[in-house]
Write a protein that binds this DNA or RNA. Structure first.
Length: 484
RNA sequence: CGGGGCGUAGCUCAGCCAGGUUAGAGUGCACGGUUCGGGACCGUGAGGUCGGUGGUUCAAAUCCACUCGCCCCGACCA
């Protein structure tokens, strides 16, 4: 970033305490760290440069992973003819309440309304019909980065807005096995982004029937835990079998010269990730960014009281920024007192603060302070090219480890409905139980716990396990939680 | 869409219950000066259709009706 950027404006000191008012704290942090703001349009937000930079730092590595796994980026229309969306029964039923429609154009009523895409399965299946003729055209692995619209009743910055940014991957395969492999491959990429980049440990697995994507044969997801103990669905990967290709009459000629429907998948991760990072790592001082996705990894605060000191510090800064390359460094030369800058950059979650003043330079050192724990270290200037990357790495791991311990501390294994109800009455987090997969059990738990639902199915149950809810033989082990 | 809360300066809010000069504070903003290792201070200045419409009244930010919007909780959901 440039050193001579104009001062931040509109900065407000107070943020509500995380422990007292979590939703209020979240709103304050998002707005005061200048990630995003409310807009003139209800339910739609303005993503500000700092928030967009965080998004880019999540988006870019994800885009790399998507390309490395063989996918190509496409772009499809944002407006979808209503009839396209009506073809897959479950899909229509699931999404219709969320449609936003264009009914006029060119001053006239349209013959057919155009829906602002809530997701692009229908458009992509309709278009790719023409591109897929033979098994030789498969697999067809597409992805697109775009905005989508869903008419949500209640919105929250980043977590649920009427319009949001994401990527949606759509793939078509010759066999079911290949498509299912794709579904888990892409879920694994999401796990890597969540855990390795955003430092948020996740549970990965299948969703229950009632929680699956409208139109899918099954849905898989990654679920993280926020600092209020609630679950955040951070990425989904769906297996469609032939549901969509059949509905859209998408066929190919197989190896035996017979017409077949391809097996398809879709998967998506959105700007919701930015909000997840805030909620998974923030504290009463504000946001805390994992170094790998931080727009500014190191902020240098020069401390000077005279012109002589200023030129001394200036040359030290120039030497350091030249020597420490491949690190995103910002130098804050604004005419503010150091304490003001410390607080502001902590609010914005910068992982490392480097203080450079006469006292440090007299010893040939700088002071490094970690946002994670405010640990201060006097570091010789010559060591910085190795010390800074090492410290960033330790912070990245430290954040992940802290989040993992928080999740472990808020995860319990329970064996009965009573215990499950008690868990959600007395605490928050994940409760893991054996389950028979009956939908009635989900309704029971939701009613008795004030809203806990199944998050992901973690694996198969053993033959002797009984469903914690109804006592019938269990088929799976499932994590329950209250979700965003 | 149900419950609760709120719309007064860029932001946070006081004033409203008991209507009455030229509508306030803090913060932010501009300029000048002193400061500068954990949110400094002094001075000067700019900034307002009190969300909107209608009503009551000699008089409305304040009372009444309607309306628009936002936030929080719930149902629905990435």
């Amino acid at each position: 970033m440039a050193d001579d950027e104009k001062p931040e404006t509109g900065f407000v000191k107070e943020i509500r305490k995380q422990s007292v008012d979590f939703p209020g704290w979240y709103n304050d942090v998002v707005r005061k760290a200048q990630l995003a703001d409310y807009s003139p349009v209800r339910g739609c937000m303005v993503i500000r440069p700092y928030g967009y930079a965080v998004w880019e730092n999540i988006r870019d590595p994800l885009d790399q992973l998507i390309k490395q796994t063989g996918h190509e980026n496409w772009y499809f229309p944002a407006l979808i003819p209503l009839s396209f969306l009506m073809k897959e029964a479950e899909h229509v039923e699931g999404f219709q309440p969320e449609f936003a429609m264009v009914t006029r154009g060119g001053g006239e009523e349209l013959k057919e309304p155009l829906v602002l895409r809530p997701t692009s399965e229908t458009m992509i299946a309709s278009v790719l019909k023409d591109y897929i003729q033979s098994y030789r055209d498969l697999p067809l692995l597409t992805n697109q980065w775009n905005n989508v619209f869903r008419w949500e009743l209640r919105t929250r910055l980043f977590l649920r807005t009427l319009e949001f940014l994401w990527q949606e991957g759509h793939t078509f395969h010759e066999t079911a096995a290949e498509a299912e492999e794709e579904v888990s491959r892409m879920l694994e990429q999401y796990r890597r982004i969540a855990e390795d980049w955003c430092a948020i440990p996740v549970l990965a697995g299948r969703k229950s029937e009632s929680e699956k994507f409208a139109g899918a044969a099954y849905t898989t997801a990654i679920e993280g835990m926020m600092l209020d103990g609630k679950a955040m669905q951070m990425g989904t990967s769906h297996y469609f079998a032939q549901n969509f290709t059949r509905a859209y009459e998408l066929t190919f000629t197989g190896r035996g010269n017979e017409r077949e429907h391809p097996y398809s998948t879709s998967w998506g991760m959105s700007t919701r990730m930015v909000g997840s990072v805030v909620m998974a790592h923030g504290d009463d001082f504000g946001m805390q960014l994992p170094p790998r996705i931080a727009p500014v990894q190191v902020v240098i605060i020069p401390i000077v009281r005279s012109d002589a000191e200023r030129s001394q510090v200036e040359s030290a800064v120039a030497g350091i920024t030249a020597a420490v390359d491949d690190i995103r460094i910002k130098v804050d030369w604004r005419d503010e007192r150091p304490g003001f800058k410390f607080n502001e950059w902590e609010l914005k979650g910068v992982p490392i603060r480097m203080e450079i003043g006469p006292r440090d330079l007299a010893k040939g050192e700088v002071t490094l302070v970690r946002r994670l724990d405010r640990a201060r270290t006097a570091t010789p200037i010559g060591d910085l090219p190795t010390a800074v990357p090492a410290m960033l790495e330790s912070i990245q791991l430290g954040l992940f480890e802290r989040a993992r311990q928080f999740r472990e501390a808020h995860t319990s294994r329970v064996e009965s409905l009573d215990a499950l109800v008690r868990f959600f009455t007395e605490s928050v987090g994940f409760a893991i139980t054996p389950w028979c997969e009956a939908e009635q059990d989900e309704l029971t738990v939701k009613a008795r716990t004030g809203g806990a639902t199944t998050r992901v199915i973690l694996g198969r149950a053993t033959a002797d396990q009984r469903c914690a809810i109804c006592g019938r033989p269990a088929t799976v082990e499932v994590a329950w939680g209250k979700a965003y």
